[in-house]
Design a binder for these strands. Structure first.
Length: 699
RNA sequence: GGGCACUUGGCGCAGUGGUUAGCGCGCUACGUUCACAUCGUAGAGGUCGCUGGUUCAAAUCCAGCAGUGCCCACCA
């Protein structure tokens, strides 16, 4: 075959084909052929915006491949299809990344000052914007670049401010002094969802408080104690409740109130606990309930405050050591026990968090949680897999008010006079499905594409992001943001470990594309997207994908060669054949084709990407290539009747064309390249807008 | 402490009641004029975690047990 090489070379094809697609304009739903608009049915997915902190990883690649399968199929089915791209400013994560870069230059953000620092982040954003969007293009994603959004765009910021003032006027946003999670490294508050708990061995210290002994893992916070709490039913301590006990502390003699509260677990430690309202969430609640004083002994910088006596200025760890030493000295440390404790860490920098008393802005969650639950309860919105609903409801049922202020520089400034804090990055991300479509303006896009159809995302941001998008959509649009939520598997290493750049267990999808080609990479990933929660990533599957592409290529070469011999053209969709002349092989392949089309359709609609990939592979390789192609060689030989020969050629082309169509969402580049060369009547500009095959009956 | 998921040939996974349990990668033997050696043909390899139950029939449904992983939670 003179114009097709013996092996498929993705490098010669991919950039060229992507340019052809971009030039066609078909990524943009407004530029699709007229037939699309007439059908008046739209299909929309907004991409989960990657953080601008770096490059895309395997999770992004997997998610992008899944979404591209969905939108390419819908586009071919005649839907006016929009897949909207975008990026998240990712407040804390990006600020950390830029600070890290500054550190290499020996500087901190304070050396630059707020204005210059933010300017620097925008430079960073520009760089990674191009990298990330370029990587989506390499993967073959059919995203409408003309609608690319960023969570800090001017229009988007207007939406954020409007949302803030809406809640504010409703009285749902309030400022309060509360004990919150504080990251001493990032110097900011964090919401409950931004805390990662890690189990670590610790020491449980039994300390004498006058007549009562309490147990704690954090003796340094005892300087901030303002009460001792016991269970009112506890006969050991009943007599002390509401009384004041005299105690000896490392700072001298003191008095301590004893309170009774049923939240105290009698079976833990000694059954008595110290109450440190400023440095423990539970203790804070007790202090509100019982009207206790709040003494802040740990500062924003993670060091003991001036009211900590001789320990002032020490780090928490140093103070702990000193206090334990001193307690031993004065004989109030009864004993210690080894204890496994889960410590709270920052989800962005891993630093141990200090609960501290701080003035922050909160969003009331009571009504919003109700809004978030409703559409999932009624079935208007569905989760795939359904099992995620349980965790979703559990979180909403127990959710506390959302701490939305962050003491960062990079982000949306809180739109109130005199406020220097910014909003939690998820506050703006929560508006993604409608703010990207133009809200608060009443745009054509909103009318046409909202509610969107599918949200495809990872399970770790279900509550952090998905739940918040749902109540935001319900509150501001009065409609669900998306009809279906697809929770894709997490990509792990072959050994079942988390993929992480810093651990050296990461896998770069762009390198895989370099090595195997984009189609092979996509197919290799999708081939592994089965029902489980995780994928143990096997690079072997990229090899499989590459071989499969080569098979598609060569089978096409064979079919094209036959077609060229007789200059035969097939109809794009319909095939008129004389059923009586069909050989058993003809009948069988046509029947299999009909079956596979139906099956692939169902699999994609129910997000069974791996099953679809397996089936399409088996059909093409085994049914079509191994069996029918071999049979066709006999049916095409010189000693058979001319009519059989023609018919065989027709069937070859017909099956190939339909195979290309159903393969296209999975391996878009190679199928487009072949489509461009295939002799088909009424050929479209691109396979992207060819008609998705109907599961027709066999021959 | 609660919840969820998983356990099938060397490795990674399909298969959710019915003939000899499949796929990819790997492995063995043979085969290169005629689409493809990134290939073809043939083949080796599994008591489907364990125990009990339901059924004419179970990898597949139920119960218990064991192992692995994940998520949630204010045990100080």
């Amino acid at each position: 075959m003179k114009n097709l090489s013996k092996t498929y070379n993705p490098k010669e094809v991919e950039d060229k084909i992507y340019k052809l697609w971009e030039k066609s304009g078909f990524f943009n739903p407004d530029k699709l052929p007229k037939s699309y608009n007439l059908k008046a049915k739209s299909y929309c997915i907004v991409i989960p915006p990657p953080n601008i902190t770096g490059e895309l990883h395997m999770g992004h690649a997997l998610n992008a491949a899944c979404q591209d399968v969905l939108v390419r199929k819908k586009r071919m089915e005649g839907f006016k299809t929009l897949w909207l791209p975008g990026l998240d400013h990712a407040g804390i994560a990006t600020q950390n990344a830029v600070e890290k870069e500054l550190k290499k230059e020996g500087k901190t953000r304070f050396d630059l000052g707020r204005k210059k620092f933010i300017k620097r982040v925008w430079q960073w954003k520009k760089k990674y914007r191009n990298t990330i969007l370029g990587q989506f293009k390499k993967l073959g994603c059919s995203l409408d670049w003309s609608r690319t959004r960023f969570t800090m765009d001017k229009d988007y910021s207007i939406a954020v401010n409007q949302v803030f003032s809406h809640y504010y006027k409703k009285g749902w946003i309030y400022q309060g002094e509360r004990t919150i999670n504080w990251c001493t490294r990032c110097s900011t508050s964090l919401s409950d969802l931004e805390v990662i708990y890690k189990e670590e061995p610790a020491e449980l210290y039994y300390i004498k408080y006058g007549p009562i002994t309490i147990a704690t893992v954090r003796p340094e916070t005892k300087l901030g104690d303002t009460a001792v709490a016991v269970n009112p039913k506890d006969i050991r301590y009943k007599k002390y409740i509401s009384k004041t006990i005299k105690i000896q502390t490392v700072l001298g003699k003191a008095e301590m109130k004893v309170i009774g509260d049923k939240s105290v677990d009698m079976s833990f430690g000694t059954g008595a606990m110290k109450v440190t309202p400023a440095h423990d969430m539970h203790d804070f609640e007790l202090s509100e309930k019982h009207g206790l004083e709040k003494k802040q002994v740990i500062g924003d910088d993670g060091k003991m405050t001036s009211i900590s006596g001789k320990y002032a200025g020490m780090t928490v760890m140093d103070a702990r050591k000193e206090i334990v030493k001193d307690m031993r000295k004065i004989g109030i440390l009864e004993k210690t026990e080894p204890y496994t404790h889960s410590i709270a860490c920052c989800y962005r920098c891993d630093t141990i968090l200090e609960p501290i008393l701080s003035k922050q802005w909160f969003l009331k969650m009571k009504e919003l949680a109700k809004l978030a639950k409703k559409p999932v309860k009624t079935g208007e919105m569905k989760f795939y897999p359904k099992s995620f609903e349980k965790g979703y409801f559990a979180w909403l049922d127990n959710v506390r008010d959302w701490c939305i202020s962050r003491q960062l520089w990079w982000g949306h400034r809180i739109p109130l006079k005199g406020e220097t804090d910014v909003l939690d990055t998820w506050f703006s991300a929560a508006l993604w499905p409608f703010a990207t479509l133009g809200w608060p303006k009443k745009t054509k896009d909103l009318k046409e594409f909202y509610p969107t159809d599918v949200l495809s995302t990872a399970r770790d941001i279900m509550n952090l992001w998905v739940a918040r998008m749902i109540f935001s959509g319900m509150e501001f649009m009065k409609k669900i943001p998306f009809r279906k939520v697809y929770i894709h598997p997490i990509v792990l290493t072959k050994e079942g470990k988390r993929m992480s750049k810093s651990l050296g267990t990461g896998m770069d999808p762009i390198q895989l594309i370099e090595k195997y080609g984009a189609d092979a990479t996509r197919f290799g990933i999708l081939y592994q997207v089965m029902r489980g929660q995780d994928i143990r990533f096997m690079e072997d599957n990229m090899v499989m994908g590459k071989k499969f592409c080569n098979k598609i290529w060569n089978a096409s070469r064979f079919v094209l060669l036959q077609a060229e011999n007789t200059k035969h053209k097939t109809q794009s969709a319909k095939l008129k054949l004389n059923a009586q002349n069909l050989t058993p092989a003809d009948k069988k392949i046509l029947k299999s084709l009909g079956k596979i089309i139906k099956s692939i359709d169902q699999d994609i609609e129910s997000f069974r990407f791996g099953q679809a990939a397996h089936k399409i592979y088996d059909f093409f390789w085994h049914d079509f290539c191994d069996i029918y192609l071999e049979k066709s060689k006999k049916q095409l030989s010189d000693n058979v009747h001319y009519s059989v020969k023609i018919q065989t050629q027709q069937i070859l082309l017909y099956v190939l064309l339909n195979s290309l169509k159903i393969l296209h969402p999975f391996v878009p580049f190679i199928t487009e390249e072949i489509y461009q060369r295939i002799p088909v009547k009424k050929k479209k500009k691109s396979l992207m807008i060819e008609t998705w095959p109907q599961p027709a009956k066999a021959g």
